Amino acid sequence: MKKNWHRMCTAGLSTLLLLFSLNACTNTAEQTQQTKQTEDTQQIEASDTGYIAYHDAFDREQELTAENAKRVVALYGSFAEAWELAGGTLVGVTEDAIEERNMDLGEDVAMIGSVKEPNFEEIIALSPSLVILSADVATQVNLEPALQQASIPYAYFRVDTVEDYVEMMHVFSYLNGREDLYEQNAESVYDKVQEIKALVTLQPNPTGLLIRAFSTGAKAKGADNQTGVIMRDLGVDNIVARHDSLLEDLSIEEIITEDPDYIFITTMGSEQAALTALEKGIMTNPAWAGLHAVQQDKCYVLPKDLFHYKPNARWAESYAYMAKILYPNLTEEIDNIMAT
């Protein structure tokens, strides 16, 4: 039986059933302006002749045409899913497209290794017109010289924010000639996120701690990942901003000093192994039970599909989920936004 980590945060180390809770959100006018600036910096230029120029994850100007959409290989499951959401088809994907995204791919789509170990020979054998890669995976970044030597078109993306997702979908949808899917799976998602952020602007800003747990330990995280960005956008004052040392060592002393209103937990790898490690680690300290978030039952294990894996067309769901946790008084209004 799994442990109820929502309750464990309030009761210490009792053995219960793992729960997931619901949602919350917050934002400021300054952050709205930053969002607008983020959109403006992308400078995507498209023409009626099927040509598109954009800036990749390394801020390099790149050019693609509709011809590049014919035989696409994606080396990251979330990018493979985003490509299909934009109306594209695939000839090759990495294993996580099936194992993590549960994508329904045909028998003609080849498995070309894992995210960290893609098989370059198998990629070449597919004669791709475009290879989509992650700028956050070192082995994929290191493939660039080989792709250049083989004269294989490629594109690097990084998605840590809903703005990153929208920009990527702009490129994907244009290449596939599916502006309708851009509006459905990107633009409308972005609009809902902005509505939720605007809704919570006048709410009091709570303090919070984001913990990323894995089988061998745990670390605090700031706004360098999608969950940290969502917390920031929803007005959460992440205590990591004042205690950089938490990024390396999850110190109970510094957590006690700040005594955050909310604690959010995301997991990597096996969720049960990560939560077990957390239980045997920092939660064994008697001071953990004295934290405000623990005593007020405001410690949450966040679902992987919305907060660890890239949510793609579900970005608004991620914001809504956390918004309802942080501001339960706005639940009905958030639900109305999501229903439109």
Rank of each mutant, 00 (worst) to 15 (best):
S21Y: 00
L19M: 05
F79V: 09
F79D: 03
V109G: 10
T41C: 01
L126C: 10
E95V: 11
E81A: 14
L133I: 10
T35W: 13
V109R: 05
E100Q: 14
V93G: 08
Q42M: 07
E99A: 13
N23C: 05
F20Q: 00
S21D: 01
S127C: 02
K36W: 08
V131F: 07
Q42P: 00
Q42W: 15
Y51S: 02
I112H: 04
G113F: 13
A11C: 09
N102K: 15
Q42S: 11
T10N: 00
R60V: 04
T15W: 00
T15R: 00
C25V: 13
A57N: 05
C25R: 05
R101P: 03
S78L: 06
L13R: 10
G77W: 10
L17K: 03
E45T: 08
S127F: 09
F20V: 00
E99N: 13
L13Q: 08
P128E: 07
V131R: 02
N119G: 03
I132N: 07
Q37F: 03
Q37A: 15
R60N: 08
L130Q: 00
G77C: 06
T65N: 02
T26H: 07
D48T: 09
F58V: 02
H55Y: 15
N23Q: 09
M111A: 09
L75I: 04
T26F: 07
G113Y: 12
D59M: 09
L17F: 06
G87D: 09
S134I: 06
L19H: 02
T15S: 06
A69V: 07
E81G: 05
S14I: 14
L85S: 10
S129G: 12
F58E: 09
D104Y: 01
R101A: 10
A53F: 06
S114R: 04
Y51R: 02
K36R: 14
A24K: 02
Y76E: 14
T28L: 10
Q37G: 02
F58P: 05
M8Q: 05
T35P: 00
A74Y: 07
D59A: 13
I124L: 15
N102R: 10
L13G: 05
A57V: 07
E122A: 06
E39K: 12
C25H: 11
L85N: 14
I98H: 04
G106A: 08
E107A: 15
E99S: 15
P128Q: 10
K116W: 09
E121V: 09
M103E: 12
M8C: 05
A74N: 04
E30I: 08
E45Q: 13
A110W: 03
V109E: 08
T41Q: 12
A57I: 11
D40K: 15
A74E: 07
V115Q: 13
E99R: 15
Q33D: 12
A125E: 13
S47P: 04
S129W: 02
N119H: 07
C9L: 11
M8T: 02
A11K: 04
I98D: 11
S129K: 04
D40G: 03
E122Y: 06
L105R: 12
D104L: 11
A66Y: 00
K36S: 13
E39D: 12
V115K: 13
N102V: 04
N68E: 01
R60F: 01
K70T: 13
F20L: 02
E99I: 11
L85T: 01
I44A: 09
L16C: 01
N27Q: 13
A57K: 04
